[in-house]
């Protein structure tokens, strides 16, 4: 048990906005080079505070992705990005969600499930299409098995291109949607 506490203490706070002291390891200095989170996070938090009373709930839907986008969406929750501190939470049900974060291309076999998830989400709601495939069909396009872009199936409010978009791209995408 003490081992856990010791490790937590010696690892220190790595979350990039708040990395106060570089006491933990040499590696921290290397890690902090990834910039942009600080500024971006501040803006994001201000927007969410103003428009969503401090918390924005996201339901992620994989509608046919190769799972590359999912890996980067997951990374938003790791200690470096820790998107929860800005008030962004991933929730388990579309009933709890403000935003659907949809990766694509939308496969024909997921089309009905995506429509139903959209219908199950309470108003007001927003949809962000993630990745090149979600944006325009990407490498897969439209075929007998793929509807292509998310916008071909449900209304889309913002698009975050990239193959896959990085965690910073994703944060920027959420910010862009609510800043205008």
């Amino acid at each position: 048990m003490f081992g856990i506490y010791r490790k937590i203490l010696t690892t220190g706070v790595l979350t990039e906005k708040f990395a106060r002291k570089k006491r933990a390891t040499q590696q921290v200095a290397l890690e902090s080079r990834e910039t942009g989170i600080d500024e971006l996070g501040k803006k994001l938090q201000a927007t969410i505070d103003k428009r969503f009373a401090g918390s924005l709930h996201i339901r992620q839907v994989d509608a046919g992705s190769c799972n590359g986008c999912e890996l980067e969406i997951h990374a938003l929750n790791n200690v470096y990005y820790d998107i929860e501190r800005f008030g962004v939470h991933f929730v388990a049900s579309p009933r709890h969600a403000d935003v659907l974060l949809v990766t694509g291309p939308v496969s024909r076999n997921m089309e009905a499930a995506l429509r139903r998830t959209y219908e199950a989400t309470a108003n007001p709601k927003w949809v962000i299409a993630v990745g090149d495939c979600g944006a325009c069909g990407g490498e897969f396009g439209v075929s007998y098995a793929s509807c292509g872009a998310v916008a071909n199936v449900i209304p889309v409010d913002a698009v975050v291109p990239g193959c896959p978009p990085t965690p910073l791209d994703l944060m920027r995408g959420i910010l862009d949607l609510f800043s205008c």
Binding site: D62, G64, S65, C66, G68, P105, S107, R108, N109, M110, A113, G138, E139, F140, G141, S143, Y144, A145, S146
Partner: peptide, 24 residues
């Protein structure tokens, strides 16, 4: 559920384009 026709859309691609598809 995420069947997106990879085998079908591979047909007619160049070698380089297939490598991209395989990567996805």
């Amino acid at each position: 559920y995420v069947h997106k026709g990879i085998e079908k859309i591979a047909e007619g691609r160049t070698a380089e384009s297939l490598a991209r598809l395989a990567g996805r």
